[in-house]
Amino acid sequence: MKALAVSSVTFSYDGAPQCALNNFSISVEEGRMQALLGPNGAGKSTLMRIITGQLRGYSGEVLIYGDKMTDRSALISIGYAPQPISLYTALTARENLRFFGAMAGLSDEQVVLRSNIVLEQTGLTAHSEETVITFSGGMQRRLNLAVALLHSPKLLLLDEPTVGVDPQSRNHIYDTLTELNAAGMTILLSTHIMDEAQRLCSSVTLADRGEVIFNGRMSEIDNLEKLFLEKTGRGLRDE
């Protein structure tokens, strides 16, 4: 079964001369961890925002486990960790989890239970009552992931989840993702780090200038960075 099916999506920002996404299609099989790669301006973040229901006004279709975005069942099925650390820094880790848990429709008991689990998974149990503003970059990044995992989503969408974190936090995040995927969670990982994609993912989609330019299995690729540069060119991207 397809966890995610994006079919022929075209989208332009107001006033932009070019399409951010042009007839873009991508699918992720259930239980897979798939990488979404592309240089700046490829349309990765736009795609993530469309899949998560933040952007409307596109043509084409987005289905999550067969449910159309933005149906409630589709929204509930996804967990999203955006690239900017989107947390309330004046609140504690647990207060953030309680808030987003309520938004996901969890009961008080479920919030407490799941909070304990995701705090443990992300190594933040000891800091659960501290305000997020006191957290290091790595801790904030891990909490960003914990919030996405809180309501036990079937499909996890990660937009550059290890940007700006130290190797310890990065490895902890890698281990967590590997465990989650092994337990059956489907993951779409958007990243610029080739090693990260090659280490974690079983398949890859390459995008450039709003279009898909490569789809394949990771096991068939010797050197992902070399492939990436061959497909997208070596010229600097200032988009």
Binding site: Y80, P84, S86, F100, G105
Partner: peptide, 11 residues
Amino acid sequence: DGTLQRLFTYP
């Protein structure tokens, strides 16, 4: 900071 946008990824 993106928290508002994140809110709209929930039902």
